[in-house]
Design a protein around this nucleic acid. Structure first.
Lengths: 221, 221, 221, 221
DNA sequence: TATGAATGAGCGTTCATTCAT
DNA sequence: TATGAATGAACGCTCATTCAT
C-alpha cells in the first residue's frame, strides 16, 4: 500500500520536484500506517523513515517535528474529505433514505475501513494531547459534516420521512453508528466481527422508517 | 522486632494490610488520572508515584510493570461494573422506555462523565496496543453489556414498544450515542458542548417511540 | 586527579549523602578536565559520565543540563577563590612589592597552573556564548579582584613605590601578565615555554621598581 | 557551450576566475564572522553558506572540510599581518615611545577591535583543539611579533628610555595589555567597558617613562 | 562549476526498572 | 516493606558531508 518512488522522470513537473512530492507522500503513508497501528508515542521516527524508504534525516526535511508530521498526515488525508462533504447538494433530494443508501452508505463503509477511519481513530486517541489538531479536525471535518447531516435530516422532515422534527437537532445520531463501527472494528474485530452494513441500515430504519424499495426483504401483501 | 510486627499484621487485616491496600488504591487512582489525561506512553511512573504519595519503588512492589499497572487499573475499575450490569433483571419490566429513563440514563451519564468513561476512552486509545486488555474488556464489559441490551430490546419488542424485531439484532445502537457522547466530550467540549441528555433521549425516541409519560413534551388532547 | 568514590562510610554525614557528594565532585572534576581540554561543545556528556565513573543518567541527577553542568563547575571551582581574594587585607602592608612577591606570586603561579587557570581559559573561550556565566564570573571574581588590586596599587602610591598615581587607575596592568601566562601556556607551551615567574617579576619591576631585597640580582655599588 | 565558457575563463583572469575568488572571499568573510560570534562548533556550514550567499555544496568546493575552512580563515586573515609586522624597521628610531604611540597604538587598537582581534580570540578558544593551527599562528604571527617587540625594547635600552635591560627579555609585557584588552572587551564590555587607550598608554608609561611631548599631561616648570 | 536534497553517524536527554539501604 | 539514587537502553533531532542534477 505504501512506497511509491522510483519511476523515471516523465516530463513537466521537473524530476526533483516529482521525487520530492513522492517522498513526502511515502512518508505520510508510512507514518499514518505506524501511528495508526502503534500510536503516536510508540512510533519511532526512524521506523517511519525506514517504512517510507528514506533516511532518518529526510523525514525532517519535510516535517520540522514529530508533531508536525502528525499534523501533516491529518491535514493531507483530511483535505479531500472536506471538499467531498461540502460538495454534496441535498436540496432537491426526493427520498432521503434512498439518497443515503445510494450515496452515503458506500462512503461511510469506505470511512470505516480506509485511511479516513484510521485518521478518525488516531484523533480520538491523540486528540486530547493535540488540542490544535482537534480544533482543526472539528473545523474542517466535524462541523461541516454535522451541518450537512442536519440539512439532510431537515430535508427528511420535509419529505415526511421523519415525523418528529426534534431529531434533526441531533445530527450526531446519524454519525454515532459510524463511530461505533470504526471503534468496534479496531478493538473487537477479532473477537466478534460486526455487521457494519446491517448496523447502519438498522439505524436508518429507526430514523427514517423502513423503505418499501429496499433491496432487503419486502413484505408482499 | 520484625517478628512482632509481622505477627500483628497477620492477626486481623491490621494496620499494615490496610495501609498496603490503601497504597494500592492510591496508586491506581493516580495512574488512572494520569493515563487518562496524558495517555499511557506520556505518563511517567515517577509521576504516578508522586501523585499517589509513594516512592517510585513502591509502585513496583504492587505492579511488576507499567503494563501491569495499566491492566490493574482496568481490572479494578471495571470489576464492579460487570457485576452491576449483570445484576439487572429485565424480565418483568412493563415499559422499557420508562425503565431506561429511570435506571439507564443516570448510569449512562455517570459513565460519560466519570472514571468509567475515562477507562473506555483509554481503552479506545490504547486498546490496539494491548490486545489482551481489549479482550479482557470485551469479555468482562462489552459482551455482557451487549447481551443485556439485547435482552432489553427483545423485551421492548414483547411490550410492543419496538415494532421491527430486527432492531434487537443490533444492541450496539443503544450504545452508539453513549460512545459518541464520551468521545465528543473528550475532543470537542471546548469548541461545541454537546447536550448529552438530549442526544440520548432522542435516540430513545427513534428507537422506542416518544413516551406519553415523559417529563418533556406532552400531547394535550 | 579525578575519581574519588569507594571509601567506606565513616560516620556522621550519612553514607548516602557522602556518596552523593563524592559523585557530584567526581562529575565536576571529570567535566572540568574534559571541558578544558576539548571545549564545551566537543565534550560529550557520555564521556563526562565515563570519566567520573558513573552512568550517563547520573550526571543528569546532579545537573539538569549540559549548561547547568558548566555553570556548576565554574561556581564550584570559583567559590573558594572569591573568599580568598576578599580575605586579604592590604591596609597595613609596609612594602607592596614584598607583599606581592611573598603572597601574590605563589597564588598567581597556582592560578596559571591549576584548575583555576583552566576555569579562566574556559571562560575566555565559552564566555561570549554564556553571558550569564560571564557576568557571574565578573561579579564573583573579576570585580573583587580588580578592586583588591586597585587597593594594592593605591597602597603602593602611599608607600612611594609607585610614583605616577595614574597607574592605580589600571589595576588590569597587574593582571595582564597573568592572563598572558595562562594563555601562552595553553597554546604555545610545547613550542616555546614561557618563564612565567620571570615575566611576572619583570612586570613588577616596571610597575614598582626593582627591590633591593629581591632574591635576584643585587646592585653592587 | 561548456568549451566556449572554459576557454573564455582561461584567457585572462576573467569573469569566472574573479567570481571564484570573490566567492572564496565571501565564504571566508562569513565564516570568520560566525566562528567569532558563535564559536567553531556552534557554527553550521549551512549558515556559513547562507551568509556568504552561496549554496552549501559550494563551500566544499573551496574547503575540503570544516577544519580546512577554519585553517583557511586564519591563514588568509593572518597573511598580510605577518608581512606588515616584519616590514617595520626599528633600526633608526630616535624615540621608541614616540614610535610606538605614532605607529603602534593605532595598529593595536585596530587589532583589539577588528578582524585580527577576532582571529586572536578565536585561536585562544579553539587553539588547543587545533594544534597545527596554533603552531602556524605561533610561527607566522607570534614568533615574528615577539622578535620585533624584542628589537623595539632593545632599541629603547639603547636610547636610554629603558633603564633595566632585563625587561627586554620579556617582550610579552608589551603584548600583555593588548591581550587583556581583547579579552576584556569580549567578555565584560557590557558590564564594565575598559579604556583601552588609557590601559595601553599606562603600560607604556611604566615601561618607558612618561613622554614630555605626550599630548596628555605636560610638566610645566 | 554550483546546487541543495539526501544521508546517517552522533549526541543530549528521558525514563522504566533495579537494588542497596 | 519502602525508598529513591543509580542505571543504561532508547529516541528525537542535528548537521557535516556527499552526489545526482
Amino acid at each position: 500500500m505504501s512506497t511509491v518512488r522510483a519511476r523515471a522522470a516523465t516530463a513537466i513537473p521537473g524530476l526533483r520536484v516529482r521525487r520530492a512530492a513522492e517522498r513526502r507522500a511515502a512518508i505520510i503513508d508510512a507514518a499514518l500506517d505506524l501511528f495508526t497501528s502503534r500510536g503516536f508515542a510508540a512510533t519511532r521516527m526512524e521506523d517511519v523513515a525506514a517504512a517510507a524508504g528514506v533516511a532518518k534525516g529526510t523525514v525532517y526535511l519535510n516535517f520540522t517535528d514529530k508533531e508536525a508530521l502528525f499534523e501533516g498526515i491529518v491535514r493531507t488525508v483530511i483535505g479531500p474529505t472536506v471538499r467531498e462533504i461540502q460538495a454534496i447538494d441535498f436540496a432537491a433530494i426526493p427520498c432521503v433514505r434512498e439518497a443515503i443508501e445510494r450515496v452515503g452508505l458506500p462512503a461511510v463503509k469506505d470511512m470505516a475501513t480506509s485511511r479516513r477511519g484510521d485518521i478518525a481513530r488516531l484523533l480520538i486517541s491523540e486528540g486530547p494531547r493535540f488540542p490544535r489538531l482537534a480544533e482543526f479536525y472539528y473545523r474542517e471535518v466535524v462541523a461541516p459534516g454535522v451541518a450537512q447531516m442536519r440539512l439532510l435530516l431537515e430535508r427528511a422532515v420535509e419529505t415526511g420521512e421523519i415525523a418528529d422534527g426534534r431529531v434533526a437537532e441531533f445530527p450526531q445520531l446519524l454519525a454515532a453508528p459510524i463511530l461505533m463501527a470504526i471503534i468496534w472494528q479496531a478493538l473487537f474485530q477479532r473477537l466478534a466481527p460486526l455487521d457494519i452494513d446491517g448496523l447502519l441500515r438498522a439505524q436508518l430504519d429507526v430514523l427514517l422508517g423502513r423503505p418499501s424499495w429496499s433491496s432487503r426483504g419486502s413484505h408482499a401483501p
